[in-house]
């Protein structure tokens, strides 16, 4: 078994992915077939390796753990069949903890023309699903479902980081009704988050991943069964707190990071969205977007 490896660029960052396990690297190559895949002589930003938990696990009851510059202490070894998910999590972690050029927010984002919406919220609040719906059902350009990169420039811009959208559980069926199966990665069952399936963004989102957009609206989705659709505007300080908590690197960015978030909440209105249905969510966003002008 030789070392398998690939390089892929997602937005502004290039990743080196390698493993002695063939299957997860091949799965990553297939998932990222539409993304720029670099060659050996290019500089990369982050390396992620999937290695056997102990040496003999390379052959028998195969399981792997991940090595990279930024990892959680207590990461659990995973079975070989979930290797693709492990790569995805490790890649996200490198960006969340190691990327320094822009403010990294745990948020989804999408654009219409050169103006963008930022979708901020806890895991499971509906960020990925809402961003997938916007790009596949409402004509938005997908910028990212997990991490939003806010450039500390004037005017403030969002840099696309359009990695495959990590759909979970019932969201998979919601999007499978709307999108051709060829855009989906393999179904990964029995993960810590239940069933996970990656959905490639529309091809235009990948082709335009170097085209930034200016934030014009911030929303925080709250999906819950049986609630009536409604929106509530956040105060500027509430919006600052939400963005600050959602940022994985603001403390490292010092005063320029503070300055950028302050300008963002002064310039861009922010709302909580409550809904129990995809169509309601799209309508709430459409109404706010029209108001944001």
């Amino acid at each position: 078994m030789t070392m398998q490896h690939m390089r892929v660029r997602i937005g502004p960052a290039t990743f080196d992915i390698r493993s002695p396990f063939r299957a997860p690297v091949e799965a990553a190559r297939r998932l990222y077939a539409e993304y720029p895949q670099g060659s050996d002589d290019e500089i990369f930003d982050f390396a992620v390796a999937a290695v056997p938990t102990v040496w003999w696990r390379r052959w028998y009851r195969r399981s792997m753990t991940f090595r990279a510059d930024y990892m959680m202490e207590d990461i659990v070894p995973i079975e070989e069949r979930l290797g693709l998910l492990g790569f995805e999590m490790a890649v996200n972690m490198q960006m969340a903890l190691g990327y320094r050029r822009d403010i990294v927010l745990h948020a989804a984002s999408a654009a219409q023309g050169d103006r963008a919406i930022i979708i901020v919220g806890d895991s499971g609040a509906g960020k990925s699903t809402l961003s997938a719906l916007l790009s596949y059902s409402a004509g938005w350009r997908h910028l990212g479902d997990e991490l939003a990169l806010i450039a500390m420039d004037d005017p403030i811009t969002l840099k696309p980081y359009p990695r495959p959208i990590g759909l979970k559980n019932q969201s998979i069926a919601v999007m499978r009704e709307r999108v051709d199966g060829s855009r989906f990665g393999p179904e990964l069952t029995g993960t810590m988050k239940g069933t996970v399936r990656h959905l490639l963004p529309p091809a235009g989102a990948i082709a335009n991943m170097d085209v930034p957009a200016r934030p014009a609206l911030i929303v925080s989705p709250h999906f819950a069964e049986g609630v009536a659709p409604r929106t509530e505007q956040m105060s500027q300080s509430e919006a600052y707190m939400r963005l600050s908590v959602a940022s994985t690197n603001q403390l490292q960015l010092g005063e320029p990071g503070f300055d950028t978030l302050i300008r963002l909440v002064r310039e861009v209105p922010a709302y909580d969205l409550h809904y129990s249905d995809s169509e309601d969510a799209l309508k709430l966003v459409a109404d706010l977007w029209a108001k944001a002008g």
Binding site: S235, Q236, S237, E238, S244, E255, F258, I262, V265, R266
Partner: peptide, 20 residues
């Protein structure tokens, strides 16, 4: 310090600690 009043509350960035 850098003091920035928002609509409702005032935020202060402390340059030495990097804390807000």
């Amino acid at each position: 310090l850098r003091v920035e009043p928002l609509e409702d509350l005032t935020l202060v960035f402390h340059r030495l600690s990097g804390e807000t």
